[in-house]
Design a protein around this nucleic acid. Structure first.
Lengths: 245, 245
DNA sequence: AGTTGCACCTAACGCAAGTTATAATGAGTT
DNA sequence: AACTCATTATAACTTGCGTTAGGTGCAACT
């Protein structure tokens, strides 16, 4: 039972360790975040909608979620992927009204933290605040990289870049080994994240398979040639700010 | 002389006032930021390059600048516009290496602040920190909105949205009245910011003139029908988080 | 007066990517 | 077993937007 619960902060701990060395005490402090009951949502459910005024900070434990924005006529843009270990709403500390929505892409499990619980952890271990802020800054850097992708990269480059990014981030939380990882989202989701039509995502994936860059089947993505993929994507890992590779 | 110098923080003071009420003491504290000499750069000069490790926080006083990222083959994406009153590098507090560059779009004037000078102001007036964090969060929200624009909005919608955003932001720092403001950047810059070719930006502007949405000539932009422009852009001002309209 | 460079404008051409439609598969339901 | 519904695939058609290649006007410099 205990190990099941403490599996909750494992991705978060690994993630923050990428930015700075953390001790066993830090890890213990982080387990204080596991107070509340664990929440679950089905794929395609919303965790929060634009315009709401949330009072909790969500820590994703398993599954993939996303931040998205939509237009009155139904067009939708995914602006970020949340992977295990990610916080969805750290901005709650400062801003009131949400300017975006949060949706589950797969079935998800997450903790809902009240700001004061969160505060407690920071008070106990002040340098964790720095690690968390770092994580937020990296999230912001990822947004910028996505703008570069959508604005300038071709579809093959764009998907290549995204796959390398996801591989790096999943490896950081121990969810990717070799050049292979669970890829639980649909081509439709890829389209929404990359400003492409569903049909064109499919075409582009076919092309990437022909180029022997990736294998993608049965919700598993295998990168066949990581170096080539990085070259094509013009991937520069500095924006992830992982200090300890 | 004094009023010339204190004109430096005027845009910043106005900007932060949009988020929360500020007092004369706050204003006085902010003038402490004007310590160093004022710096200047020509249009098209860089203030900082990706990969650098800056030790200063830049506060833009006049002119327009941008945050941009570029690819090895020369493609370039502007990911944010900096207007007077904006900080270029608040993230220096946390991250070390820059994952983007900062460039002047017009001749600019700015202060370079050392983190400890900055700290001094925050210590004196703690709630200014909150206002500054707020400003950072808004910047992040603007990034998300841009992602929505580039990913989903048509060129006319995209430019419409940008013009409304710039009008709102410039009004907040007292640089736009009526429906008119100085528009010192080139169509080439608009192209770089919107993921469009120069030629297509020109086409799109022509169309917007035909639609009687805007007039743009002699570096002056006039919005002819703000409500119509907002409707076309599907502009929802919540992402700017201006509490006091 | 001539040159250079920059910003803006316009037209012709072609391809990349969106749209629409249809089919195959598989999982979950009744 | 028949139903839905989501997902992937792929073909035919259309179009938006990039590319290339010009043009003009203006300011700065020689």
């Amino acid at each position: 039972m205990t190990e099941l619960v403490s599996a909750g902060i494992e991705p978060l701990f690994r993630l923050l360790s990428r930015y700075m060395p953390l001790t066993a005490e830090d890890r213990a402090a982080l387990t204080m975040l596991e107070v509340g009951p664990i929440c679950t949502k089905e794929a395609r459910a919303d965790l929060a909608r634009e315009g709401e005024n949330p009072s909790v900070i969500r820590l994703l434990v398993s599954g993939w979620a996303c931040r998205y924005k939509d237009l009155p006529d139904g067009r939708r843009q995914i602006v970020a992927f949340f992977l295990p270990g990610d916080f969805c709403d750290l901005s709650v500390y400062i801003l009131s009204e949400l300017d975006h929505s949060i949706g589950a892409l797969t079935p998800v499990r997450y903790f809902e933290l009240l700001p004061h619980q969160f505060q407690q952890v920071i008070d106990e271990r002040p340098h964790l605040l720095r690690a968390l802020l770092w994580h937020e800054m990296v999230a912001s850097g990822i947004q910028r990289e996505w703008l570069l992708s959508i604005g300038q990269r071709t579809p093959v480059e764009r998907l290549s870049h995204l796959f390398v990014e996801l591989y790096s981030r999943l490896k950081a939380v121990g969810q990717a080994q070799d050049h292979c990882f669970d890829f639980p989202i649909t081509q439709h989701n890829l389209a929404e994240a990359n400003g492409l039509s569903l049909v064109h995502v499919n075409r582009t994936l076919q092309e990437m398979r022909r180029m022997e860059l990736i294998e993608l089947a049965d919700r598993q993505l295998r990168i066949l040639d990581l170096e080539k993929l990085k070259r094509i994507a013009m991937f520069n890992n500095n924006y992830l700010h992982f200090n300890r590779e």
